[in-house]
Structures are given as structure tokens and as C-alpha cells.
Amino acid sequence: MTKGSIFDLKRFAIHDGPGIRTTVFMRGCPLDCWWCHNPESRQPLIMDNTATGNDGSTHRRSRTALADGLVAPEQVIEEVARDIPYYDQSDGGVTFSGGEPLMQLDFLMKMLQLCRGRSIHTAVDTTGYAPSEELGRIVDLVDLFLYDLKIMDDHAHEQEVGVSNRLILDNLKMLTTRGARVIIRVPLIPGITDTNSNLDAIIEFVKPLPGIEEVSLLPYHRYFRHKVTDPELAAKLAGLQPKTEAEVSAMSRRLEAHGLRVKIGG
């Protein structure tokens, strides 16, 4: 039986796609973004049932209980289904996020199929860094992709997140060609992704693609799930100066000027 590993299940998620959603945070990520807000996603996949989740405690039956060890897709979707009345009311659904959900392809596919069977709207929040063939296998099961674009310059991309962006960009083209609905998400990392030249490159790439519903600009915030213990990293993070609201609005207008629909925040 296909089981998988998640590190959190958040209900009443309101910034991860349309409506009221439940976000399933899946473990494992091929990228190494040093500013990552969910570093626990990068812990290695837990492949046995004895290990405990990152939370390490307590009887949180419907939340982190699932984050302990391996879970069956049915278990996760049973939790997700508890909020169907809210999804129906708000045109919401489930969002698979991470980490990179495609790292656990079979587990993800099974969950997507279960959602299809129960008419639950599905979104997959992806880095796009996955074998194209694997990504292609889920296209017809996903109602909406939340597709992260970070840095358009390949060299800089490799430097900051550890991998080339070529596969990511190719995959995005492939998705839109296959008729997928896509929202582009750009985390605004000060001085790294939010520069005018990077935003312009994103515009240039995204504009001709069919099926791009919207571009979400995700302002950087100093809000971490965990304490950063590495002093070097802490210093690097401290150097990131969040942009003001006015500056973010200016970025938004830059994209809108090219006819893109923009939303600030998820």
C-alpha cells in the first residue's frame, strides 16, 4: 500500500488558493532555498512507522498525529474531507504543498484520485522541479497548480537554490500547453527575487503562456515556524529587509501593466 509522509495538515488555510482550504504539507524537497520558511519540509522522508514527526509531542489527534511516521492517503483525505462544507460554501478545497509534493508521486496521485472521487477541488503547490513525465501524470487530476517561480537567471538560480531552473521553466510550458490552470507564485525575497530585472524576466516568460490565471506576489515576512540555530544563516536572514507595502504595490503595478492579473499574498 502507498503511504507517505507529511509534516503538517493545516485547516482553514486561506492563502493557498481559492476559498477556504486545507493545506497538506508534504515532506521532501529537491530545492535548497536558504530562506525557506518550512525547513522541516527538507528533512529526509521518513520511511518507517516508528519515527516521530517534527512536532514530537501531544495528542493532537487530527493534526500532527498524521505527521508522525507514515500515513495512508485515505487517512489524510479523511481529515481533508471534514471541511467539505466550507469548501462547498467558499469554492475552496485541498492544497498539496510542501516541500515538493511530487517527491512522493504515488502518494500524491492516490490522494488526488481520492479527492476526485469525492469532488474535492485540488491544488498542487509545486516548485516545478520534477521529472516532466511525473508531472505529466498528475496534470489531469489537478484542478489548479500553484507554480513557484523564483529566479529567472539560471546561474543565480543554481547559486541560491542549488539547482538549475531549466526543468522548472520547461515544465511550466508543458503544463500550460496541456491546458492546466496555473497561478504563478513569486516569493519576494528582498534583493534576490524581487529585483526589477527578475520581475521583468518573469513577465517576459509568463506573458505568452496560455492558462495563467494570476500571478501571486508573496511578500517576505520574518515569520518562521522554527528558530534558526545556525548563526551564519540567522545573520543572512536578518539582512533581508522586507519591502514596504508601497514597494510591493509598485511591483504589482509593474506586472499589471503587461496585462497580468496580480494578487498580493496567496
Partner: peptide, 21 residues
Amino acid sequence: LFSDSDGIEKLAHLVRTYFKM
């Protein structure tokens, strides 16, 4: 949570759903 119209919209859905139940 209430800072933008989107947040208010979602809270409204939350209330409506509770009332449906």
C-alpha cells in the same frame, strides 16, 4: 486576518458554513 477583502470574504464563508450547520 481581516486586513483585506479576501480575508473578510473567507470569514464570511466561515460564518455561513457554521450557520448552514
